[in-house]
């Protein structure tokens, strides 16, 4: 492992040396992140060459970040679930239901606070149902969340009658007003960064995070080490639901409306971003930073293609190819490290 990182040309962000014996392991993680940063760099270079005026424009960079924010928040929750050995297929549907519920006339009467509360509560509620079914009802995560996907989306359509619910609360609309910046950054991006930072802290600095990794890596060993595996699983789905609620609110602010098509295919994008970021689909390994970079890679590609007027069908094909490439690279690295 050490020799591999030594052999690498050093575009790595400076890491304090002397991290002691942990350096071998750390450098392994860094390698993936460096690779992702490299991909982002290549994409930026392509953008700078093909559309020099538009791509590197501050507004465009800001746009990429704003477009990453809602799906980014969902991806943080998804990353934790996958590291814990699960999968959540229902994230997109929960986002839809939460955004519809939070924009009903009755909810809008309570203003921004009421809408935020409603979105988050719906997200947590759906996550709770997922978690109880999986942890205590012993349903396979794939099945339980697939069921939630279908019913939450159906419920959202029923509630909105398939229409678009326009937001009339000014405070919510102001969040995305063109000149609304905090330190030059749109509020939605700050929310994304905040959630990502919290996710990182939870994963790396808390007992909850440590247990998540253990449960995902070897559930039997975790159980026999005295960890309450069921509770851990339940809480992970609740967390994912919470992230969906937050993302739903962000989408409402972004579009100024709530509709049952919000968050369409978010489950695929979030899973793909997590996997590109180095999260092992079988659980036990993954990083928040990797997932954030994974989301940025995806959004940047979409942006590049849009600037160059490439059809969205081609974009989807490219996304598929990138997922395959990322997973193949992961196989290579994990095989190398396991033979050492």
């Amino acid at each position: 492992m050490l020799s591999k990182s030594d052999a690498l040309p050093a575009p790595a962000p400076e890491k304090p040396k002397g991290n002691g014996p942990a350096a071998g392991w750390q450098s392994h993680v860094d390698l993936r992140l460096v690779a992702l940063l490299g991909v982002l760099g290549v994409l930026a270079a392509i953008g700078a060459i093909t559309k020099p005026d538009q791509f590197l424009d501050v507004d465009n960079v800001r746009l990429i970040l704003v477009q990453s924010s809602a799906i980014g928040v969902v991806t943080i929750g998804m990353t934790l679930v996958i590291i814990g050995g699960g999968i959540d297929l229902s994230v997109g549907a929960i986002v839809a239901l939460a955004s519809v519920w939070a924009t009903t006339q009755a909810t809008q009467d309570y203003g921004l606070g009421g809408m935020l509360f409603c979105a988050v509560a719906v997200g947590i509620g759906c996550g709770l149902v997922n978690g109880v079914l999986i942890a205590y009802g012993k349903l396979v995560p794939f099945i339980a969340t697939l069921a939630m996907l279908a019913s939450a989306r159906g419920f959202a359509e029923q509630m909105s009658d398939g229409g678009t619910q326009i937001v009339e609360v000014q405070a919510v609309l102001d969040l995305m007003a063109a000149d609304n910046r905090i330190l030059g950054v749109p509020p939605l991006v700050l929310i994304f960064l905040g959630v990502a930072a919290l996710g990182w802290v939870v994963l790396n600095r808390t007992t909850f995070g440590r247990r998540t990794v253990a449960v995902g890596g070897n559930p039997e060993a975790a159980r026999l080490a005295g960890i309450d595996v069921k509770r851990q699983r339940l809480l992970l789905y609740v967390l994912s639901g919470l992230c969906c609620g937050i993302a739903a609110f962000m989408l409402i602010a972004l579009s100024g409306s709530g509709q049952n098509t919000n968050g369409n295919l978010y489950e695929l994008d979030a899973i793909a971003a997590a996997i590109i970021g180095g999260t092992l689909l079988s659980g036990g390994r993954g990083t928040i930073i990797g997932s954030v970079l994974g989301v940025l890679v995806f959004t940047t590609i979409t942006n590049l293609f849009a600037l160059n007027n490439v059809q969205s069908a081609v974009q989807d094909i490219a996304k598929g190819a990138i997922i395959v490439a990322a997973v193949l690279i992961q196989h290579q690295t994990s095989r190398k490290s396991s033979t050492q």
Binding site: A22, W25, T206, T207, F208, R210, R211, V213, A214, G217, N218, E220, A221, A222, L224, A225, G226, I227, G284, R285
Partner: peptide, 26 residues
């Protein structure tokens, strides 16, 4: 299969049952 977290360090394998001892409020 039943005791070790094979991808983790010795330290994390040893501490996994005693995490509350090393934590305040999680």
């Amino acid at each position: 299969a039943q005791a070790l977290l094979m991808t983790e360090s010795v330290s994390r394998n040893v501490s996994i049952s005693s995490l509350p001892r090393f934590s305040t409020g999680g």
